[in-house]
Simulated scan of single mutants.
Amino acid sequence: MNRSLFDLARKLKLEKASREFRDIREAHGHTATRRLMDEVFVDFPDIDHSFIREFQTAGFFARVLELALFAALREQGKELDRTSPAPDFVVRGDAPVAIEATTTNPPQGVLAEDVDIASAVRRLIPDDLEAAEAEFVFQIGKALRRKLDHRDAQGHAYWEKPHVERVPFVLAVQSFHNPSALFHTTGPLSTYLYGIRDVPTRDRQSSLVLNSQIVTEHRRKDKTIPSGLFAQPEAEHLAAVIFTNSATVSKFSRMGTERGYGPEDVAVARCGAMYNPDPDAAQPVPFGYVVGDYGPEEHETFSEGFHVLHNPWARTPLAAGALDGFTDHRLQPDGRLLTTIRHPDYFVSQTMIIQGGKAALPMARRRVQQYLAGNAGRR
């Protein structure tokens, strides 16, 4: 029988646990978070019996990503094989896929304790957008290449392991290298993977026109890395990259609250920017809602927020339907990226947990109204 994720691992003292774990373990406002995480973990096969300790210490963010990805795949009815510790997930059936999850992390020598990821709620937008995007690309590139270069004790890459031979290999990644890392979406990542970026212009009728521009390298300060990872020889075994910026504690908090797992004196609000369906729109639109102010048919899913970017040059590509529950991105012959959206596409958001007895819910609704009123002109 699985223990709770919030029971301390054997011989681990609370003061040695990560700050993020301690905050969630002890916070009244995270009651729903804890309950949903434990509920998902009941069915999570912890093959090497390291998940709880890593969840409670330096691997907290990576383990939250794994837990959310597991829940999303199970939600889609995928047949999961967890009999081997690596790759993290192997989907069996008619459209098999092997998935290894990874994260970007604070720079070497900087402990997670020193990086207040929670401050992203208060300071979601980086101070220098251009520099932050460059750092994001470098960090994502490093995380992906680290996994592509990895070999086990027998000298096998992930895709060479006997139980996943001839199975499409996919890397899932999320960024936690600094407090504003979750601000970034698929845009700069797709540019890095495909070596192409969309440049928006307007025609004489003021309609939006997107033109493809080839990108050969990415620069950060005095360093450069080549663009177009998918087209490079070392990525020929990489069928796709799964990206998300929402497989976080906040997702578990919102979904747990929707299910009624939270106390009555706590309300949760979510605000941010989302996809604009107007074909001539160059900017996202603001959104905001109080969690639970809608029916069960509108409840959030674990699959929301996950994106699959396919490698058109992969030696073993993904079969149709392999990851059909996620938003899908495919490079077209004209250099444009075709995106198939299957869920509400929230680019970036912040989740506010509000405690205040009977006043919590009205307070949450006012916060949302104030946010929408303050961003009414952003179209």
Rank of each mutant, 00 (worst) to 15 (best):
Ala9Val: 10
Arg10Gln: 14
Lys13Phe: 08
Leu14His: 09
Glu15Val: 04
Ser18Tyr: 06
Phe21Ala: 08
Asp23Gln: 15
Ile24Glu: 11
Arg25Ala: 15
His28Leu: 07
Arg34Ala: 01
Arg35His: 06
Phe41Gly: 09
Pro45Lys: 10
Phe51Arg: 00
Ile52Tyr: 12
Glu54Gln: 13
Thr57Leu: 12
Ala58Tyr: 06
Gly59Ala: 07
Ala62Thr: 08
Ala62Cys: 09
Arg63Val: 05
Glu66Tyr: 12
Leu67Glu: 00
Arg74Asn: 09
Gln76Arg: 14
Glu79Thr: 14
Arg82Gly: 12
Arg82Trp: 14
Ser84Val: 14
Phe89His: 14
Val97Tyr: 00
Ala98Asn: 00
Ala101Gly: 02
Thr103Pro: 05
Val110Met: 10
Ala112His: 11
Ala120Cys: 13
Arg122Trp: 15
Arg123Met: 13
Pro126Thr: 05
Asp127Leu: 15
Asp128Cys: 11
Ala131His: 06
Glu133Ala: 03
Phe136Val: 02
Leu144Cys: 02
Asp149Lys: 15
Asp149Trp: 14
Tyr158Leu: 10
His163Leu: 06
Pro168Trp: 02
Val170Ser: 07
Asn178Ala: 10
Ser180Gly: 10
Ala181Thr: 00
Leu182Ile: 10
Leu182Pro: 00
Phe183Glu: 03
Phe183Arg: 04
His184Gln: 06
Thr186Ser: 11
Pro188Lys: 09
Leu189Val: 03
Leu193Lys: 01
Asp198Ala: 13
Pro200Met: 03
Arg202Asn: 13
Asp203His: 04
Ser206Ala: 07
Leu210Ala: 03
Gln213Lys: 09
His218Val: 04
Arg219His: 02
Ile225Ala: 00
Gln232Asn: 08
Glu234Gly: 00
Glu236Val: 10
Glu236Leu: 10
Ala239Lys: 02
Ile242Asn: 02
Thr248Pro: 00
Val249Phe: 08
Met255His: 11
Gly256Thr: 03
Arg259Ile: 15
Arg259Lys: 14
Glu264Trp: 14
Val266Ile: 11
Gly272Ser: 01
Tyr275His: 14
Ala282Met: 05
Phe287His: 05
Phe287Tyr: 08
Tyr289Cys: 09
Val290Glu: 02
Gly295Tyr: 01
Pro296Trp: 07
Thr301Arg: 13
Glu304Phe: 07
Gly305Ile: 00
His307Ser: 05
His307Glu: 07
His310Glu: 12
Pro312Lys: 02
Trp313His: 02
Trp313Asp: 04
Thr316Val: 14
Leu318Thr: 03
Leu318Trp: 04
Ala322Pro: 01
Gly325Asp: 03
Phe326His: 02
Phe326Ile: 04
Arg330Cys: 01
Leu331Trp: 01
Asp334Ile: 14
Gly335Thr: 04
Ile341Ser: 05
Ile354Leu: 07
Gly357Ser: 04
Ala360Ser: 15
Leu361Asn: 05
Met363Phe: 07
Arg365His: 09
Arg367Phe: 15
Arg367Thr: 15
Gln369Phe: 08
Tyr371Trp: 13
Tyr371Gln: 10
Gly377His: 12
